[in-house]
Simulated assay, not measured.
Amino acid sequence: MKKITVLLALSLGSLTAFAQNTKDTNGPVGLRSSTDYGTGTTDSRNTGFGIKGGFNLSDVYGDDKKNFTDGSNYKSFHAGIYGQYGFNNRLSIQPELLYSRQGFEGNSTKTTTTGTATSTSTVKERRLDYLQVPVLMVFNILDNVSIHAGPQVSLLTKVVEDGKERKIADDGGVYGYSYTSFDYGLAVGAEARVGPARVGARYNAGFANIIKDQNLATTGNKALSDIKNSNFQVYVGIGFTQ
């Protein structure tokens, strides 16, 4: 969690400096800043839609994270579309629809008993594919720099453990635990604009436990259920104003 906080702070500082350095080169037509519009009107550069995508650096947090050994970050990507409606030249709302490939790495042991024979296996890497819908309030702190925050809901569509796809729900007790198909949480970040282009950084924290219905007899005596999604994103996008 400390790594994510430092990354987000550095990204915000970099975005602010980048936007300030490019502010005077944008030109008057089609590349206007948010404050070039009249106050109190929706005729704002903050109204439009676009596409975006970028890099994910994901992990988990929670009391049971310590029970996964040799843990490390999972690196992948996200992509999607967004729409934005400006209430005025400073404040807007921005819903998004994203495909986000997340996950985490950390060893856990599974015990399987067949008759009198017992075998153990280790799961190292877990890939979790989500469809995410964040709904963000966006506030322009500078002409071309904004901060955003808001709730996010996510639907788990696919689980891959060590390169093999598995069922999200463990209906037959084969895996010893199920994955939670629905997640909810909070997204917060910052973004800079240069003309129609956007570059930003965001941190997403999930509030639902990723793993549920753990069978300790199958998965060993260490609880694995109290872990939640933690994801840092860096992205670029192209916007089309209305």
Rank of each mutant, 00 (worst) to 15 (best):
I81Y: 15
K110P: 04
T116N: 15
A79G: 15
L128E: 08
K110I: 15
D143K: 05
S76G: 03
T114F: 09
Y82W: 10
S76N: 12
N88F: 06
A197R: 09
L142A: 14
G80C: 03
H148F: 10
V153R: 04
D171R: 13
Y85K: 00
R166D: 02
S108W: 13
D183M: 13
F182A: 14
K158A: 05
T113S: 12
K158L: 02
F77N: 10
V135D: 01
P134G: 12
P95D: 02
E96H: 07
H78P: 06
D162M: 06
V159E: 13
A117C: 11
I168H: 00
Y99W: 14
K124V: 04
K110G: 09
P134A: 12
V138P: 00
D129R: 06
A149M: 04
S92M: 06
E125D: 13
N89Y: 00
G115W: 09
G185K: 04
D129H: 05
L91C: 01
F182W: 15
L186V: 04
R193K: 15
T116V: 12
T122F: 04
G176A: 01
R166G: 05
H148T: 00
P95V: 08
H78I: 07
D170H: 10
G80P: 01
G195P: 04
V160A: 11
F104K: 03
I168E: 00
A149G: 11
G150V: 14
S121F: 04
S76K: 09
G103P: 03
H148R: 05
V153I: 15
S181M: 10
L155Y: 07
E161Y: 05
L136K: 06
I93N: 02
P134E: 11
A149N: 01
R193N: 15
N140M: 12
G83E: 02
V160F: 12
R126P: 09
N144L: 00
V174G: 14
S92P: 07
I147F: 13
G163Y: 13
T112E: 06
G195M: 06
S121I: 10
G195S: 07
L91H: 01
S76T: 07
G185P: 08
E105F: 11
K110A: 12
A149Q: 00
V123T: 11
R90C: 07
M137R: 01
V135R: 01
S154L: 09
A187M: 13
G185N: 05
G185D: 03
F87A: 02
G176V: 02
G106F: 06
G163T: 11
Q94W: 07
V145R: 13
L98K: 05
L128H: 09
S146F: 00
I141P: 10
G172T: 08
E161G: 01
V160H: 12
N89S: 06
